[in-house]
């Protein structure tokens, strides 16, 4: 199992994920949200195609004073 397969949510999780975040959507809004799922999956698959090695602190160099 690749990293992204393990981590990327399935479409059927959508309602539960939103509910766990405290969001209650109408059936119509939920239907619209479902249309974004393929693009969200694709984005995450691209991001998890990268294997980052070495130092793993992710925020270095983001704000100049942290650089």
């Amino acid at each position: 199992m690749t990293a992204f397969q393990r981590r990327i949510p399935e479409e059927e999780d959508l309602k539960g994920m939103l509910a766990r975040a405290g969001m209650v959507l109408s059936p119509e809004d939920l239907e619209i949200m479902e249309t974004a799922f393929p693009a969200v999956r694709a984005q995450l698959e691209r991001l998890y195609s990268y294997e980052f090695e070495g130092e793993v602190y992710p925020f270095r160099n983001i704000f100049p004073k942290n650089g």
């Binding site: 995450l44 991001l47 998890y48 980052f52 992710p58 160099n61």
Partner: peptide, 12 residues
């Protein structure tokens, strides 16, 4: 994890 992965990408 997704958020951190995105930030690791950002570093790259």
């Amino acid at each position: 994890e997704d958020y951190l992965q995105a930030n690791l990408f950002r570093r790259q």
